[in-house]
Nucleic acid binder design. Structure first.
Lengths: 327, 327
DNA sequence: ATAATTTCTGTAACAGGTTACAGAATGTCT
DNA sequence: AGACATTCTGTAACCTGTTACAGAAATTAT
């Protein structure tokens, strides 16, 4: 490995001068600059980022903690964050937390030890206080925790309303909801949106709400039971698209026609909504913008600037496709 | 930030002793050890990983370069690698290359500057020589480049054969192939497997082979044209599942019944094969094992051990589902 | 010509760990 | 008791950049 001292020696200057050339700061004579740069070329010298980090207490690296990258909702988020921070010269350390608070803390510790400049994370197990003990820039994605913690998410409740209203408008008489996991805030918000629309209707009953864990197989199981017990159900709003796929599957296995006998709508508008048959209606999140905004906020914090707002809430959009169109 | 010197001062020992306690090497008196550990607890001291990296020339970090994490094939790979290396105390820096050699080199440079201990990458744009100039452990995933570069992949040609034979056995008379991108080796191997089975049959014609870029929309377009020009086609082997989904979509739009009029099979067996209607047949790769093996090899190389084999080729498995079952 | 600036360069300390080496204390063996 | 090995601890150099500070050289102002 060539070091800055090798370059300095070969160019007959001090390491300080080489450093000045590298960082383009301070005064350097034009001839000297050229000579140093030639030597850098010649030796193919690349400065050691670790040594630089040690002194500057920064690493040009950010952490990104997601529950599980295998969940098709997250890769797009990761991608949009990378696209943004990359042009700012940062790289990403990616970790999967499995929604496990111990893992989350473990990774935050490691990231801090590695001098990451900031962290973007998707969590609902940590609270405001735990997060602030890390005293480094942290931006929450997808799930807000506290008004004081910078976060970016979408209006899930509105989304729940839009989806449910849409089913009503399509003429559904009994609308069920497959809810996401217990402690996940956005699942609860979507559920609230559903309640906003149908909670007061005469036919409404808590029996039309079942839990599905954001997972297609669980959703398929619970939907089958639900439909067998309640054949009157003619519309289902699933808390996310993976569960909506499970619902679709359940309907198919029970020989129920979608959308004629059962209208279905999901949430997230992941890529494969267009690949199913019938195509799946959904509530779209502007995933790319959400990721980008989180990245922007984090870079802002890292650069020591103030945030205009601590929370950004994006609008959602109803995507009407065949699985719910009965008119 | 508390440093090792703070701990040393408070515990009335030298930094060397604290270091010995931290790393559990060298001689340390039991009482001293306890005292130091109490101080570490008390100050909540966490050693600075950057300083350690600088001296040890290692970072407990590996790089992982994928073409695009948004492609549903890669997250599972990333996950399995993370699960393995994590228990060895490593973290992952993830980067998307978009199959662009400049980006790949750029990221390799950065990773090297950050002292990553090794890199796992999915590429076919770099050659043996370029890779070896980086003089750090690199393991290739999914696409081999040269027998000397450690790599893990599956028997794509066999997979191509299995898929095509399966279609033959289902009674298909004219089998087309939607091929992956030009320069991607595994796409070519799958294509060769297809040729192995049907290349010598009397009906065979190059017209039954079209290029689809591993992408569902492109695949849908080309398939529509193909089927319009060649209504005699009654079986399609798509180079990957995303393209198979495009084929499925094309058939639906043309009013062609799957599998009765057209049998379809894909490759990779990504999660959503079970979510389509009809469910998609595919050739399954043991993704989790492939990722794990690559991680194992990399850790081996990092630890300076010798590899038993430079290349590991995993078997594939035919997954027969409804999209191809005509019997 | 002298003073005041500005440009240019080098020395050495610093970031926060690890470890070679030396020396002291303790234990074991004739 | 003396020779030797073993245990324990500290000092200081090292990893590789960055930068404060000082001093020299060149330029501009008076």
């Amino acid at each position: 490995m060539t070091t800055i001292r090798d370059v300095a020696k070969k160019a007959n200057v001090s390491v300080a001068t080489v450093s000045r050339v590298l960082n383009e700061n301070g005064y350097v004579n034009e001839d000297t600059r050229k000579r140093v740069q030639e030597v850098i070329q010649e030796l193919n010298y690349k400065p050691n980022a670790v040594a630089r980090s040690l002194f500057k207490k920064e690493s040009k690296t950010i952490g990104f903690i997601v529950p599980d990258i295998t969940n098709p909702f997250f890769p797009a988020l990761v991608r949009s964050v990378e696209d943004y921070i990359n042009q700012k010269g940062f790289t990403i350390i990616l970790s999967n937390s499995d929604e496990n608070p111990e893992k989350e803390k473990h990774y935050l510790d490691i990231m801090k030890q590695k001098y990451v400049d900031g962290v973007i994370m998707v969590t609902n197990t940590l609270d405001h206080e735990q997060i602030s003990t890390y005293s480094m820039p942290i931006v929450l994605l997808d799930r807000p925790i506290h008004a004081d913690v910078p976060s970016v998410f979408v209006d899930n409740r509105l989304g729940g309303r839009l989806a449910t209203e849409h089913l009503l408008k399509q003429g559904c008489q009994r609308i069920a909801h497959i809810k996401g996991p217990e402690k996940v805030i956005n699942a609860d918000d979507r559920y609230q949106g559903y309640l906003d629309v149908v909670g007061k209707l005469p036919w409404f009953s808590k029996q039309y709400i079942v839990s599905g864990n954001y997972d297609k197989n669980t959703a398929m199981e619970v939907t089958k039971k639900l439909l067998q017990n309640h054949p009157e159900i003619d519309g289902i709003f699933a808390g996310n698209d993976m569960m909506a796929l499970g619902v679709l599957k359940a309907a198919e296995q029970l020989g129920i026609k979608v959308p004629e006998q059962l209208a279905i709508i999901g949430f997230d508008d992941i890529d494969l909504t267009e690949m199913t048959s019938p195509e799946l209606s959904s509530v779209a999140q502007p995933v790319y913008e959400v990721g980008k905004k989180a990245a922007e906020m984090l870079i802002h914090l890292i650069e020591g600037k103030n945030l205009e707002k601590k929370q950004y809430i994006f609008d959602v959009e109803l995507m009407e496709r065949k699985s719910s169109k009965r008119l």
